[in-house]
């Protein structure tokens, strides 16, 4: 590990000021960052430890819940309000990592976690995300875990997480705080970004800006599922996943909020699916049409071609389970 300076911050204001300086990274749980520092993928000159900031509570607020960015993944998944009112979120978190990792990992850090692309995590390989301009090893290399939607010819890495996929289906909001206490709210759906020509930017955070909380909207009920397809039945990243909040009233679909994981550089939401499904009677032909729309424009590079039929079938199976057809 390259040497670095270690500093603590006990207020958000102090942390944003320190983090705005070049070469500085914030650390909370550290389960992803320290791993990447050992691999020298991340080589910060300074780490700012956020753990003295007092914001790890999960609190009720008008119309929903506010989750402090330093709350552990475990704290969110075991919270009784989240288990009963936002089960898709608890299920998604529990489907990821191991209990040891979830105990340490924070909510803010989970949103900011980096891709698990083999070329990104190996400093002997080309990677435009890690080293802009060096090329993309995955385009012509081993790419079975890579994106089929939203990628560019400069980067086909996926956002690997589960938690943010459920938050995207719930249309949660991320509260950010930047220099001089400047706050803003961004939808989880808009927090991560597609690579385009600048794959080094995973998300829309400005220099010094930190995630301070995630706000969940009022509970919407319905059937909430998180279906994750992976190479092992536990402790493996998704090959594809579907977070679904589906409600059927008087025989017709009244709500269909869907988000997809590990098929794109960000939690993938396609509003055309919701528009197609809502108001219709659940049936197989409808679900097949939704799946066709989802993968319309999807493209593999060979190794990951299988993800196109895989996510298609995973969506259909999830919709069948949610609507009991």
């Amino acid at each position: 590990m390259k040497n670095f300076e270690y500093a603590g911050a006990d207020t958000v204001e102090r942390a944003t000021m320190l983090c705005a300086e070049n070469g500085t990274k914030a650390i909370a749980g550290g389960t992803n960052l320290i791993d990447l520092m050992k691999l020298q993928v991340e080589t910060p000159a300074r780490l700012v430890d956020l753990n003295s900031i007092d914001d790890r509570r999960i609190e009720e607020e008008e119309g929903g819940l506010r989750i402090g960015a330093l709350a552990s993944n475990t704290a969110v998944a075991v919270d009784q309000r989240i288990r009963s009112d936002y089960p898709v979120l608890a299920k998604a978190i529990l489907a990821g990592a191991t209990q040891q990792l979830r105990n340490k990992a924070s909510v803010g850090g989970n949103l900011g976690q980096r891709t698990r692309c083999f070329y990104f995590t190996n400093i002997d390989q080309p990677c435009n995300k890690r080293d802009p301009g060096s090329g993309c090893g995955a385009l012509t290399g081993v790419a079975r875990i890579h994106a089929i939607l939203g990628a560019s010819r400069h980067c086909i890495a996926t956002y690997p997480g589960d938690m943010a996929v459920a938050m995207a289906a719930l249309d949660a909001q991320v509260e950010l705080s930047g220099l001089a206490n400047k706050s803003r709210m961004v939808a989880v759906r808009d927090f991560h970004r597609c690579p385009g020509y600048t794959p080094e930017l995973d998300n829309i955070l400005e220099p010094g800006e930190l995630v301070v909380a995630v706000h969940l909207p009022a509970p919407v009920g319905g059937t909430q599922l998180y279906r994750k397809v992976r190479e092992r039945s536990s402790y493996a990243f998704a090959l594809c996943s579907v977070a679904a909040i589906v409600d059927v009233k008087r025989g017709k679909i009244a709500r269909a909020d869907l988000a997809f994981g590990s098929i794109a550089p960000k939690p993938w939401v396609d509003q055309r699916l919701t528009q197609l499904l809502v108001g219709e009677k659940p049936n197989m032909a409808l679900f097949e049409k939704a799946a066709d729309i989802l993968v319309d424009g999807a493209r593999g590079v060979g190794d990951n071609d299988y993800k196109i039929p895989l996510v298609r079938r995973t969506l259909i199976a999830t919709l069948c389970e949610a609507t009991e057809i």
Binding site: Y6, I27, G29, G30, T31, I34, D35, D49, N51, T74, Q99, Q100, L101, N103, K104
Partner: peptide, 13 residues
């Protein structure tokens, strides 16, 4: 009180 991977965290924290 909770289990963690001690390899993925820094002593100074």
């Amino acid at each position: 009180g909770v289990r963690i991977n001690s390899c993925l965290t820094l002593a100074v924290m």
